[in-house]
C-alpha cells in the first residue's frame, strides 16, 4: 500500500469509527465489510457516505455508493470522485 493509500485508509477509518462508535483502537482495513461492524446497516450506510463526502470534500456517485462491498471499494470510489486531493 502506497503512502497515499495508507493516508486514505487512515482517514476513511476515522470516519468509519466515528460513524459507528468504534473504539479508537479498532482496526479498519480495506477488506472490512459491513458484516464486520455492528451497526453498519443500510440505514447507517448513508450516514457513512455523508461523512466520507464531508471528510474528502467530494460528492460520490450515489447509486454506486450503495453497491459497495468493502472499505477498499469505498476508497476506490473516493479516488474516482477526485477525493485523492484530500490525501496530498
Amino acid at each position: 500500500m502506497s503512502l497515499a493509500e495508507d493516508e486514505l485508509l487512515r482517514r476513511v477509518s476515522a470516519v468509519v469509527r466515528t460513524t459507528f462508535g468504534l473504539p479508537p483502537g479498532y482496526v479498519v482495513s480495506a477488506a472490512t465489510t459491513s458484516a464486520d461492524i455492528d451497526g453498519w446497516d443500510s440505514l447507517s450506510h448513508s450516514i457513512l457516505i455523508m461523512g466520507i463526502e464531508e471528510q474528502f470534500g467530494v460528492e460520490l456517485p450515489m447509486e454506486r455508493a450503495f453497491e459497495l462491498h468493502d472499505v477498499g471499494e469505498l476508497m476506490d470510489l473516493i479516488g474516482e470522485a477526485g477525493g485523492e486531493r484530500g490525501v496530498d
Binding site: 443500510s42 448513508s46 457516505i49 455523508m50 461523512g51 463526502e53 450515489m62 455508493a65 453497491e67
Partner: peptide, 18 residues
C-alpha cells in the same frame, strides 16, 4: 448535521436501490 438537501437525495437513492 449534514447537508440536509444532499442527505435527502442520499436517502431517496438508498430506498430506491433497495
Amino acid at each position: 448535521l449534514p447537508n440536509l438537501s444532499r442527505y435527502a437525495e442520499m436517502e431517496r437513492t438508498r430506498l430506491r436501490a433497495r
